[in-house]
């Protein structure tokens, strides 16, 4: 495919991991994007922060584990991984261990992050 330009693209993932397939679909889209040599970032917001929690037992819900795939992001050269601090706090996860290191951002910093982007892919 001919995608010559390099753009700053932010993937925003806002859904809990297993209530719908949206979180998986967001990850699939992100991994697919990684081969096109763009400037990618990913932000976990709202219920999306649940995707990062350790010790998920997805198989009990008949699902494949997202937590098993997320640590692979750096292997795809996706290193700008952010999480919404207020969403962690609201869900009692402020001290939770996460499956992958993510930079916690206050809501004001998230506004800045979004303003720096050339496009957002929202999930």
């Amino acid at each position: 495919m001919n995608t010559p330009l390099s753009k700053k693209l932010l993937f925003v993932s806002r859904k809990a991991p297993y209530g719908s397939s949206m979180a998986r679909d967001a990850l699939d889209a992100l991994l697919a994007a990684s081969v096109y040599d763009q400037d990618l970032s990913v932000l976990f917001m709202g219920d999306g922060v649940f995707q990062l929690v350790k010790d998920q037992a997805a198989h009990r819900a008949g699902m494949k584990s997202l937590a098993a795939s997320l640590p692979a992001l750096p292997l795809y050269d996706i290193e700008k991984i952010y999480v919404q601090q207020s969403a962690l706090e609201q869900r009692g996860l402020a001290d939770a261990e996460l499956v992958i290191p993510a930079t916690a951002l206050e809501d004001g910093d998230i506004t800045d992050l979004m303003e720096q982007q050339e496009a957002m892919l929202s999930f």
């Binding site: 495919m1 995608t3 330009l5 753009k7 693209l9 859904k15 949206m22 699939d28 889209a29 697919a32 994007a33 081969v35 096109y36 763009q38 496009a119 957002m120 892919l121 929202s122 999930f123």
Partner: peptide, 21 residues
């Protein structure tokens, strides 16, 4: 087609607007 077409749309367009949840 594949998911690459979504990325291609994001790169080639001035705006990508998402509908649905």
């Amino acid at each position: 087609s594949g998911l690459g077409q979504l990325l291609d749309a994001a790169v080639k367009s001035d705006r990508l607007i998402t509908f649905g949840r």
